[in-house]
Structures are given as structure tokens and as C-alpha cells.
Design a binder for these strands. Structure first.
Lengths: 339, 339
DNA sequence: GCGGGACACGATAACGGTAACATGATTGCG
DNA sequence: CGCAATCATGTTACCGTTATCGTGTCCCGC
């Protein structure tokens, strides 16, 4: 089609010359803004199309002082947590002209600072970031930036601007209630050893606190490093049950290792949920196909993404308190006995 | 710390005034470019820090005509394929100052055009996109943009600029070889019905072609719509085996449904791999913890990401042919009998 | 003691758009 | 039929940074 390789990049000027109108008019046509007659609109559009012109948002953003990006800063991609949250965000952003841009911190505060700095240097229209714990530097940056900031996933703490999430303390406590009501008493915990995973920490704290209120405490715990996998779930389950064979319940800090543990226990012929009960956290689709449905807590990931997006997009007002707390809901499954 | 809420956003000028040097010098300090004395460097840095200044890449990009972004355009996030590829890309981009920005097309050509248009409007330094099949418009845009374009995952076709991937035809054919060598003869296929998933299509084509060379053809096939899950794997496996009970092998178009099928078959007490063999595609970590290791093909996702990133970053020259074909490698597992 | 590099920094002009206002042509209405 | 409102387009001045070139100072060797 194009015979010539355009060595000089195309600009509005090229389109304007090709269609015989001013650059301003071309700009208006391309953005559907202001009055332009149907005739010139057509002329401009065909000119732009045949030239293969693509607008320059760098220049546009500078001139208009507006950038249609929303920075989304999250700890990890491999976690099954992420795609759901992002799904909710993009679904809600779709009709707003805003576009999410993702940055990953790997649970490292210094990486978070760096990613945030980088994102803010693009002058986005808003920021969505995971967690309520941020460095002093990060808080300062966000304060200075003067744009909507929504912290997601967690509501146990003091938001910079707005928070949308669940209370992980409550999620832990409610699962403890469930387990205790079913009559389990010798409870073990398996989770990641990540000082920076504040949500997992709070969940466990809420869980233990509730046990305490009933005069109980964890009978055993097992920590692991690095990512979660079925394999690791098996390994740790074997380890904890070898060490403490008379545990009657295992609480896993996420569904992936919970599923691994479940598979291992089934192979070993444990009576589940009679002799041994199991529960995870998250509510991931993966669990749907397992031989037995693992009991878990729905972390409301999609809803969290949606509400956060609605707020940065201005579809929904920031609540007075700055906090939107969704209710974590237990998904019964088959790995806790009925009571 | 900051007592005043700065209503006017900070610019280089603010830092320059606060540190008593010109904006140009501040710019030099912040980018480590050109000669600046240690003394003024220090002055400027502290001024920038205390003000909380964050550079404006919109303005910087316009002035320098350089943007440190690499557009990454892929069909899906939920696929287990994606995080690995992106992991390879960011690992290799990390020390280059380049940053990946991800766009998702949901296997829709028109979405791909839109996403590409959007990405190119940020004038990135390079583009990495999945697949070799693109609309005429997309090819034109990429031709015009005059930047490195690397098409990934697949090498069965004509690249626009450079392609890094595996031959899916070959991957299918080699799995067929493996299955036939083990003596299986009544083979069924389970896969997504997605005309736009060209890689799955080519894999199946290579597979069937090889069967044909041995005078065989697929004894049954089952297609599904939408995303892959363990659950769907179970469902389809049940369906195909009910319909054609004497199949002795099932080839799944990905590991997730393969794993679902495997779990179902094990529950039903099938003798695997004796009576029935199974194989998937991808080589995902998930398989590690299953009761039995599913035979699969490693699609070399991390390597593909790395090589693609190396090329857009200029760490590695574009090959003469424009094609870098990695070898898909079969990961034996336990669901095919030894031969 | 003088010419000429380094060195450290500043002034100026882009970069490619858009906001805001200005302008000429048309239209509607009393 | 005249005047104001409306419509379609153009003009001008930035937006915040960087490339390029220019300027002044210091130091070194002959």
C-alpha cells in the first residue's frame, strides 16, 4: 500500500496538509471534540487513514495536562490473586477512556517505591495500589501527586486517600469460628514466611486471636519461602502431619498450597473432613475441579477491582470515611464437617 | 513533612529555584548525563528530594523523542502462558532502562488493532506481540512505526520483522510420534474451539498430519468454548469417553484441561498409562503437584520472553532470517507408557 | 604570561500536540 | 431587513523537558 517508507515520523501537520485544513481541525476530528462539519471530518479521517497516522499521546498529554492512564501497583503476577483484580479494574475502566498500566513489586518495599516513582513520572490520572503499608517516601510521593489514590485488598489500617478491600483480620477470625463450630480443636497452620505479606499476617493474627478467645492456640505451624504451588502444599502438609500426627485441622494461607495439601491427604487416605479438616484462602477457580472442594474464603477480588476502578474513574464518590469494606465470605466446600 | 499542599504541580523550575542552578543543570543531574560538579549534584539532589519532585516523562519523552517503553501485546492474562513470558521479558529488560507495558486482546483481531493503535500512540521503543497473524491494518501500523517488532510464540509463518517462538506444527507432530511409538492407536483430541487461536490450530494440524502419515486419524474430538479450567477438563473427558469408550489416548490442547481430565480418569479408576494415555501442552508448574505427572510439551515460554526482550533491547542482533525457532521439548511425565 | 583544552554551567529553540480565544460565514427571529 | 446567536474553522500561546550550542573559568605546559 504505502510505497514509501516514511523516515520522518508522521505528525498532525502531515495530516493537515494532506487534507487541506489546519492542524487544529485535524486534532478536533481525531478526538471527536468541538464542531466539525461532516464533510471535513470525512476528508480528515481518510487522509489520516491513508497516511497511517497514529496520534502522539506524549505530545497530547503534555499539551492537555491530562493522561488517560491509571497506575496499578501490585505485589505479584504469579499469585492467582492478580488476574481477577485486574479483570475487575479493566471491566470498569473500559467505558471511561482510562487505561490501566500494571507495575509489579514482588513484595519488596524498595521496589514499590521505584515502581511508584516510575509510574508517577507518567502523570497518570489515578493510582490503585495493593496494601496499606507503604514507605514514608511512597506516601509522600502520593500525597504530592495530588491525584486519586485507592489502596486495595486490605482495610485494616489508615488509608492515604481511599481503601477498598476486605478485613483480613476478620476473614481469619471468621474462618476460626467456622472451624471451631465444627468441633475441630488441634489446629495447624501452613503459610508463607513473608514479613512483607501484611495481608497474610493479619489473617493469621485474626485467626489466632479468635482461637485465643476460645482458650486455644495453634498446635503447629509450618512456613515456607517463595511462591506457592501444589507441590509445596504437599511437602509442607506431609511435614506438619509427620511432626504432629494428631492435628485435626489444617488452615492454609492460600488455596494453591491448600489444594496441594488436600491432594496429599486424599492419597494418604485421610478421612476428610471427619478425621482431618482443611481450609484455604482466596476462592480461586482452580478449586472447582479438584476431587473434593476445598473450604475457603472468597476474598472478593473482582469486586475490589471494580470498586477501586469506579472510584478513580469518578463513577462513584469516595466515601466519607475513606474506607470501603467488603465482606469476606466463606465458601463452605467439603473439607469441613457440617455442624 | 510538607506543610503545604502544593496545588501547582512541581516542575524542574521549582527544583532549579530551590537549588540555585538552571533547569538544564537539574535535568542533567537527574538523568546522570553531562558534567556536573559533585557539589551542585548534591545540592540539586537534596532539593529534589525534599520537594518530592518526580520527573515528568511526558515532557521528557516529547523533548528527547525517546520513550523507554516496550509494548507487549498478548491474547490473554488468564492463560497460564502469560506470566512466564512476561517474566522472561522483564528479567531481560531489567538492566536496560526499558519497561514493558502490557495490552490484552482476548484473541480478538479488532481488539488487537485497537490495543496496538493505543500502544503505538505512546511511541514505544519496541513492540512484542503474540502470534504471526495480524490484520492488514495492524501490519501497516507496525511497518509505519519504524521500530523493532518481535512476534512471539509461533514461528510457522512470515514475520513482520522478527519472530521468536516454537513451531507448533512441530510440537504437535512430535507429540504424535511419542504417542504412536508407545503403541497407542485410538486417539482422541480435546481442545478449545477458537478460530483465532492459531497456535492451537497449528498444533492440531501438525498432530493430525503425523497421524495421517501413519495411516491413522483422530478417533474422536471434543471442543469447548471459553477459558480452560480443571472443571472443564473433567467434563469434556467424561463426555468424550462416554461417547467413545475404547479410546486409548487423549491429547489435550493445554495442561489445565489435561490436568482436569487426568484427575477425572484417576477417580474413575482408569489404568493410566496402561489402558489410557494422556498428554497436554505447555509445561506449567501446576502439574508438579498432581497425583501423577501429566506428559506435556514445554513451550519454552520463559526463553521466548527473554530472547524477544533481548532483541528489542538490542542486546542481541536480529537474525538474518528474522526467525528464532526454539525447540519444543517433550516432558515425559507418567501418563504415556514406556516404549 | 599566554594560548588552548577541559570543565561546569546557562540560554534558546525545539518536540507535537491542545486550550482558549478570535474570526468569518450562516442562520434565525422579531 | 438588521442584529445577534450559532457554527465551522483558524491563530496563538503554551505544556515541561532536553539537544545543541555558547560562555566563562580554571589549569597546564611551554
Amino acid at each position: 500500500m504505502n510505497m514509501k517508507r516514511p523516515r520522518r515520523p508522521l505528525t498532525l501537520r502531515d495530516v493537515s496538509e494532506a487534507s487541506g485544513v489546519s492542524e487544529m481541525t485535524v486534532s478536533r476530528v481525531l478526538r471527536n471534540r468541538g464542531d466539525v462539519s461532516a464533510a471535513t471530518r470525512e476528508k480528515v479521517l481518510t487522509a489520516a487513514r491513508t497516511l497511517g497516522y497514529v496520534p502522539n499521546k506524549i505530545a497530547g498529554g503534555l499539551a492537555s495536562q491530562r493522561v488517560n492512564l491509571v497506575a496499578v501497583v501490585i505485589p505479584s503476577l504469579s499469585n492467582m490473586v492478580f488476574p481477577d483484580v485486574l479483570g475487575g479494574i479493566s471491566a470498569e475502566l473500559d467505558d471511561t477512556g482510562l487505561q490501566p498500566v500494571v507495575g509489579v513489586t514482588n513484595y519488596s518495599p524498595s521496589r514499590e517505591d521505584a515502581v511508584l516513582y516510575d509510574m508517577l513520572s507518567w502523570r497518570p490520572s489515578g493510582v490503585i495500589l495493593a496494601g496499606l503499608e507503604h514507605s514514608r517516601a511512597a506516601r509522600a510521593m502520593l500525597d504530592n501527586a495530588g491525584l486519586p489514590v485507592v489502596e486495595i485488598m486490605d482495610v485494616d489500617g489508615e488509608p492515604i486517600d481511599t481503601a477498598v478491600g476486605i478485613s483480613h483480620r476478620r476473614a481469619g477470625a471468621e474462618m476460626a469460628d467456622e472451624i471451631l463450630a465444627a468441633g475441630y480443636r488441634r489446629i495447624g497452620f501452613i503459610g508463607t514466611h513473608m514479613p512483607e505479606d501484611h495481608r497474610a499476617r493479619k489473617r493469621l493474627a485474626g485467626f489466632e486471636e479468635r482461637l485465643g478467645e476460645h482458650g486455644l492456640q495453634l498446635a503447629a505451624r509450618e512456613y515456607y519461602q517463595g511462591g506457592s504451588s501444589l507441590h509445596k502444599g504437599r511437602e509442607l502438609t506431609e511435614r506438619i502431619l509427620t511432626r504432629e500426627p494428631d492435628l485435626d485441622f489444617l488452615y492454609f494461607s492460600n488455596d494453591m498450597i491448600g489444594a496441594g495439601g488436600l491432594l496429599w491427604c486424599m492419597e494418604k487416605g485421610y478421612d476428610i473432613p471427619g478425621r482431618l479438616g482443611l481450609a484455604g484462602f482466596n476462592g480461586v477457580e482452580l478449586l472447582d475441579g479438584l476431587p473434593m472442594r476445598l473450604t475457603t474464603t472468597d476474598a472478593r477480588r473482582i469486586d475490589i477491582g471494580r470498586r477501586a476502578a469506579r472510584i478513580v474513574a469518578g463513577k462513584e464518590p469516595r466515601p466519607e470515611s475513606g474506607i470501603i469494606a467488603l465482606a469476606p465470605t466463606i465458601m463452605p466446600g467439603e473439607t469441613i464437617r457440617k455442624h
